[in-house]
Amino acid sequence: MPSEAETEVSVPVGSDADIIIARQQGRALAEKAGFSGSDLTLVATAISEVARNIVEHARRGEVVLRMIHQGDKRGISIVARDEGPGIDDISLAMQDGYSSGKGLGLGLPGARRLVDEFELESSVGVGTTVRMKKWLNSHRSVAKYR
């Protein structure tokens, strides 16, 4: 049984260098959890998108990576959290091609397609939390917005 310290990693995110650290840590943890091949790239890419959103739209926050179990399912959970400005219109933010800045507007809807479970919680003036899960050998997709 691996210890708690080995199965959870928290990465403070405040610069573009931290985006790299977050996705490298995520890839390493996903590998430990048993993921391989293109799944590792999907996990790293999803982390890159939500971590960049923190730097770009909220300046600082954190990405918490965790190995998870549910019955005999194993996987990885990625939580990106910040206390930035929050998102006013969540369904708009989740639309392909919507960006309040100069982005392609693909970060959030794209990340959602890279994982099995996706939850976005945000309030203006309070902050934003994105929770994603990817299960080993699973390809269903569930999304929730609050």
Binding site: S38, G110, R113, L114
Partner: peptide, 14 residues
């Protein structure tokens, strides 16, 4: 562009 990167790009919509 490696195959797994290409796959992730397509999923992202890029």
């Amino acid at each position: 562009i490696q195959p797994e990167i290409a796959f992730a790009m397509v999923q992202l919509g890029l």
